[in-house]
Amino acid sequence: MAYMNLVLPRPQISALKIWQRNLLVWRKLLGPSMAFSFGEPVIYLLGLGYGLGQFIGEVGGIPYFTFLAAGLLAASAMNVASFEGMFSVFTRMTHQQTYDAILATPLTVDDIVAGEMLWCATKSLLNTLPILVVAFLLGAIENWSALGAIPVFFLVGLCFAGPALVMAALAASYDFFNYYTTLLITPMFIFSGVFYPVATLPAIAQVVVNILPLSHAIALIRPLVAGQPLVDPALHVAVLVAYAAVGYVAASVFIRRRLIR
């Protein structure tokens, strides 16, 4: 039956019920969810932004505090979707058997995957938004154009949701996610321009970094936050959309293989 797993996903509008379920649960667990997504970036922002900012001053015409805030917003959108797509989806798939319950209703695996992707993206937006507010309150943001970054949080979430769902479908236990986090998420966080411009890396490293999606997320979010003109916005959006589309199809194939046996 392997061929069955390779057909393109055909979700219906009822996929939004999955999204709605997750939103209702998120509302109930707002405290811990926010503490997790919000605490770490704000600590980085305060610690590194104020501390290092004193020595660095400006990077590429942007105050370091603002430069860093923009990078951390993109990284937050990446982290929120990645962790929701791995840990929470894995919990719903295995320990809670939420999907087994849902698959006895008219919803299908394609609906589940589509609903989860939309939810991961929504959660990226919801949990990154408060960091934008804090960055504004701390004086890192002075331009209304920063509001334009909000839909980008959603797009970044969509981009990272697919690979995270694939990881959840392949995982035997939570420990498996250490590979993905250590080999991809953390290197992207360090090398993709959150803390310093990608241009300072050696040429070969820049090629690798530009293949990965986080640098493109930052390339969109940073000018919007700093009030500078966007450079090649269509290219960066296209890369993120391509990751989202490929990730969605891959996630559908792998989750279907995991759930329908």
Partner: peptide
Amino acid sequence: NQDPDFTVVENLRMYARYFG
């Protein structure tokens, strides 16, 4: 396999939604 985060009645309401 009820949703552990929902109450009894919330579980039934959510399940109803899956059926449209």
